[in-house]
Design a protein around this nucleic acid. Structure first.
Lengths: 141, 141
DNA sequence: TTGCCACTTCAAGCCGGCTTGAGGTCAAGC
DNA sequence: GCTTGACCTCAAGCCGGCTTGAAGTGGCAA
């Protein structure tokens, strides 16, 4: 049991050391001790980082993810999963409308976009709130 | 020509006055003068706000939108529209993978998620970066 | 034993898109 | 003419997810 230290985990996982420390601070992961100053981790850290990446990709916040991560393996409420899936469905629907609108508008030969019926249609959709701005988590940098 | 003032625009468009001021500061819109202290706007303001909403929904930043808004009607590079449509395609693809994964995981009867092959599959996808975290614009509040 | 250097901590900064708060000003109604 | 109250400006704050910078510390090699 030569536990991986923080730099090794960073290198293998691609997650920066600063982020690992941040995750630890937030309670998403925990180190099992130190070798000198350096944190060491259990080797299941990689799986945990995967779960975190997964949760992020699904649109959960770090706090939500932290709440789902229990000491011995993740215990995830299946209801929350379906809920998130439904949210994604809605998002996918909206993005699809947007995408089709954009494609049409870019292909359309009307002299200006405001004269393109399709463009005006998606414009009305945006105005009336039928498609929403991202309202997503923020990027790090 | 009784130009709409800021509160009227806010009421009709649903965009808060503070946001309108912010948009003006950013150069996305411009008022045509004042009535007392109150800004007044040309009546094409609503169309412009629609375009802004549309751009936001498509994933453009306010700065990008500002760059596309020219004095006399929007002048939008069709290339950028296709580009954005392609980005949306990719995003939709990823979200669809996520959604299917989530649905399967929530329905799956494996005793714990880590023993569910489907869950492990999307976990690997997230780990390997094949599906990415949102990295989207931040929400206002 | 001394120097190096990668790690550490802690606080602060950054991004985008706004909102909020303090303190000022103007037009309209009494 | 004086109050009212909605607007104004300007600066600062907020959200999430990190990164960055200054200053400290430990282990290891020479």
């Amino acid at each position: 049991m030569n536990y991986p230290d923080i730099s090794e985990v960073a290198k293998l996982s691609g997650v920066p050391a600063s982020t690992l420390r941040y995750y630890e601070e937030k309670g998403l992961i925990s180190s099992n001790g130190r070798r000198g100053l350096k944190r060491t981790f259990d080797s299941d850290i990689y799986e945990k980082l995967g779960l975190i990446a997964l949760g992020r990709a699904a649109g959960f916040t770090l706090d939500e993810i932290a709440a789902m991560m229990s000491p011995d393996g993740p215990r995830i409420d299946r209801g929350r999963l379906t809920e998130k899936a439904d949210e994604l469905d809605e998002k996918i629907r909206q993005l699809t409308v947007m995408r089709d609108g954009l494609r049409h508008a870019s292909a359309c030969r009307a002299p200006s976009h405001m004269e393109c019926p399709s463009f005006r249609r998606i414009l009305r959709a945006a105005t009336s709130g039928r498609i929403a701005p991202p309202a997503n988590p923020a990027p790090g940098k």
